[in-house]
């Protein structure tokens, strides 16, 4: 069944507060009806990087092995737990695995002066 173009969560609701994203951690957001996050955010060296939860090695492959488990065991890289691809957390570049040299698709964030993190383009939730 095709999805309606108007989705209730297409409003600029904050995803979380900056203080909830600890250095070296990852967290998924905007789960679909199957419980899979549409995007995830990595906090790396003091900066937030948001990526679509879709490994480029297979169209749309979900990457975590458990809720919010997007990082390699040493926490230094983003990892696809489908076929083991590893990515730089800040550039999204695949440095190991079946999509070597390809990149994760980035999602722009907006951080308010009060520290609320939301999507820069609130309508993006419709397509991610």
């Amino acid at each position: 069944m095709p999805k309606s173009p108007t989705v209730p969560n297409c409003h600029a609701q904050p995803l979380c507060h900056l203080s909830e994203l600890g250095e070296g951690s990852a967290r998924g957001f905007l789960p679909d009806e199957d419980g899979q996050d549409r995007i995830f955010i990595v906090c790396h060296e003091g900066r937030l990087h948001a990526w679509r939860n879709a490994c480029p090695h297979l169209a749309g492959a979900p990457m975590a092995w458990k809720r919010d488990a997007y990082l390699s065991p040493d926490g230094r890289q983003v990892m696809c737990h489908a076929h083991g691809a590893r990515f730089e957390p800040d550039s999204g570049l695949c440095v190991h695995g079946p999509c070597l040299g390809q990149r994760l698709e980035s999602v722009a964030l907006h951080i308010s002066t009060s520290g609320q993190v939301s999507l820069a383009d609130p309508h993006l939730t419709c397509s991610v």
């Binding site: 199957d34 419980g35 899979q36 492959a61 979900p62 975590a64 092995w65 458990k66 488990a69 737990h81």
Partner: peptide, 9 residues
């Protein structure tokens, strides 16, 4: 398993 947070492929 999904309800426990594991990710289906």
């Amino acid at each position: 398993f999904v309800k426990a947070g594991y990710q289906a492929f």
